[in-house]
Amino acid sequence: MNKVDDNHDPHLAHHFDTPVQQYSSAKIGMWVFLATEILMFGGLFCAYAVYRGTHPDVFLYAHHFLDTNLGAINTVVLLASSLTMAWGVRAAQLGQKPILVIMLLLTLLGGVGFMGIKTIEYSSKYSHGLWFGSDNAFYVKSGKYTNPEELTGAIEYGESHAMPHEDKGELTDEHLELQVKDAATEDVLDNQAAGEAQDQSLPASAQSNIGNATNAPAGLSSKFAEVEGDGSAYVTSEKKPLTYEDLDPQQQKLVSQFFQIYFLMTGLHGIHVLVGMALIFWLFIRALRGTFGPKYFVPVDLVGLYWHIVDLIWIFLFPLLYLIH
């Protein structure tokens, strides 16, 4: 047995021979744990893939209810907090205590910002009757809407976000602005007129489906009429956003599934962010006391890995939930 320097390093546990062995063990243990995190989210990604795969139109329709801007901002916030975390690990390794403290604080602020934006998103969903579980306007049980009185408002809310896809090639920034302006002021662009007209006719026709979602002919016949009268709409490049009415009754009943999956995925992710914030706060306190340095930075490193995996999962969640095309 090596009796060397065991007693010199207070952080070396008795069953390890060297600090390097201990550090490597901690790392591999953390990575194995992160694998379990990925598999756990994998279950939700599977549910997502199955519902999107079998009902693409439902997802295409319902994702308009999410605010892409807030999602994109959140992505940037989380990426930035990942950067500060990685910087913090570097600072701990180099023994730069002030930088480490600042970086941990910035990372923590990133987490706060992310959760704050998430709260705004959630509360706007909640206020429009688009909440988790049975508190959702689209919630259907045994073929019946359980909250029919909220349905019209919810559809209006979602479809005011809806954006036509006609302006191909034009890119992000101006477009995002346009969309915000559009949603806020109802300022209708010329090439959106058709879609807008349809928006206004929507609640009424959707109303016909309320209370009797299995009543196929009403929804369908209007759709046929539309195809015959305006069939060219599907051929030309000018595309109308998918509306609730465009979905067949079978799919209309599945809109709430999108919200369930959205809340499950972002909710579980949010819980992970909160746990990460708690851990970073703990690191922050310890860093203030000067615990970490070149000889002992394992906790910073491991929490960093955890924070990055949370970021990594969001990297997949963002395009899958907000950027459905």
């Binding site: 790392k27 591999i28 994998g42 970021d311």
Partner: peptide, 27 residues
């Protein structure tokens, strides 16, 4: 990018990267 640089995998033991890759493969 996040895994290789932020999470140090590029300089880490290959087993750690293997854990991540295997997890994604099984998902």
């Amino acid at each position: 990018l996040v895994a290789l640089y932020f999470m140090h995998l590029r300089w880490d033991s290959p087993y750690n990267g293997l854990a991540l890759v295997v997890a994604f493969v099984f998902v």
